[in-house]
Amino acid sequence: MVKVNDRMRDIGEFIPAKDDDILICRCEEITKGEIRRAVHDGIFTMEEMRRYLRNGMGLCQGQTCGKLVKNIMAKELKISPLELEPETSRAPMRPIEMEIYAKDGGNV
């Protein structure tokens, strides 16, 4: 797992690439270049990346892009994707209208 101290590690300069404009997160429209650059800005964990760029925070909740983001980050950090901890999962697991969520009757 990536430790906080690992941020001292030198991962080199951000080098622009031809495919940086390709979308990775389809919902929030976050590109590969944005994710790569964010890693160089010091975002080393999946959890922080979601908060920083909002990737995986849209309607589908990272269903499609989760694995893609992980692989891009791992490549940039020069580590195996297995070393990156997956983002936190929490309820609600699917998007839900606030109107309905607020009506939660609790223990009926």
Binding site: R26, G58, C60, T64, P95
Partner: peptide, 8 residues
């Protein structure tokens, strides 16, 4: 894209 309500 997914046709099963996941990808939105």
């Amino acid at each position: 894209f997914c046709a099963i309500g996941r990808c939105t």
